[in-house]
């Protein structure tokens, strides 16, 4: 296990380098620069600003300086939020995104797993057809459709929640549901097929033959193995939750990192885009590692790979 962690962390270095280089090149290929506004700056002022940020240097010098700064943990100043470092913006905004993501994940798991499990137990009954039908509908309702509809119904018509913002505890409810629903549907499908496979295994028959109650068989014996596909899915799901949170944060005007990233990309805020991309890439690599460790803990068979 220790080897796996070391190996993965070493693999992460070339991955992050590829990500950094590709992002750098793509951004510089993009037409326009951070200081090309609709109302053009006087050329001498623009030159001064660009010289201040080192944007007048040859491209390869900028690249090495950028890599060097990152290695020292310095993501540089934001071009569009003067006076702010990219780190400061991330530290400010990311906890909000993280909280939203965790609530979304919690909803996805706590809705998806029971639905999938029940569907598998009631295999070949109308209950299964109904639950899986709901799950398929859920997959076809992306957050930018669900979000505004929830907003309209629960905030504007029933007035249960604030329509926008992230101040009160209740402000978390609608965004988290919006974000989690799509993944709940996918998780329900995975949990169902995992459970169906496991229920045919010999050790489940043994457990039943011992005379255990069906509930004990499912919860104590079957679930742990059945959830393997779900745990494996959490890696890609985390990447999806991050992208999904861009949309949800836009809909509900939540001050997370998503809108910062989209705006930074649109405004050619080079340092901000690079900083956010590298930050998320690191995060996802770490998360995938954690998912693999959980999988090893849950399924001893995968330890020999």
């Amino acid at each position: 296990m220790f080897n796996l962690i070391i190996r993965r962390l070493l693999q992460a270095i070339p991955t992050l380098w590829v990500v950094a280089t590709a992002t750098f090149l793509l951004l510089r290929l993009a037409p326009g620069g951070p200081f090309d506004d609709e109302k053009p700056l006087p050329p001498e002022i623009k030159e001064k600003i660009e010289a201040h940020y080192g944007l007048d240097l040859p491209l390869h010098e900028q690249y090495f300086e950028f890599l060097g700064n990152i290695l020292q943990g310095d993501l540089g100043p934001s071009y569009k939020y003067p006076g702010w470092d990219v780190q400061e913006i991330i530290i400010q905004a990311f906890p909000v995104s993280l909280e939203l993501g965790l609530w979304g994940l919690l909803i996805a798991l706590s809705v998806g797993i029971p639905i999938g499990t029940i569907a598998a137990i009631k295999h070949n009954t109308p209950t299964e057809t109904g639950l899986m039908g709901i799950a398929t509908i859920g997959i076809c309702l992306p957050s930018f459709v669900v979000g505004p509809i929830l907003l309209l119904f629960f905030s504007l018509h029933l007035d249960w929640f604030n329509p926008l913002g992230w101040t009160f505890a209740t402000d978390r409810v609608l965004p988290a549901i919006t974000l989690g629903l799509l993944y709940a549907a996918s998780i329900a499908r995975l949990a169902r097929s995992g459970m169906l496979d496991v229920l045919q295994d010999d050790y489940i028959r043994t457990a039943r033959a011992k005379g255990l109650a069906e509930k004990t068989v499912i919860i104590r014996h079957a679930l742990r193995t059945a959830l393997n596909p779900v745990v494996a899915y959490l890696g890609p799901a985390a990447a999806g939750l991050i992208s999904g949170s861009f949309v949800v944060e836009t809909i509900f005007f939540i001050p997370g990192l998503g809108p910062f990233f989209v705006n930074a990309a649109l405004n050619r805020d080079y340092t901000m885009v690079m900083g956010t991309v590298l930050f998320y890439a690191t995060l996802i690599i770490l998360f995938n590692l954690i998912v693999d460790l959980i999988q090893m803990w849950m399924n001893p068979r995968s330890r020999h790979d």
């Binding site: 990500v19 992002t23 793509l26 290929l29 649109l266």
Partner: peptide, 24 residues
């Protein structure tokens, strides 16, 4: 395949967003 794994680790939407602003 290592290359595929590396790119796979990123959020798709982020890459596509960067690609879309890179070009017109």
């Amino acid at each position: 395949m290592r290359f595929v794994d590396a790119v796979y680790a990123l959020p798709f939407t982020m890459i596509v967003i960067i690609l879309t602003v890179t070009f017109d």
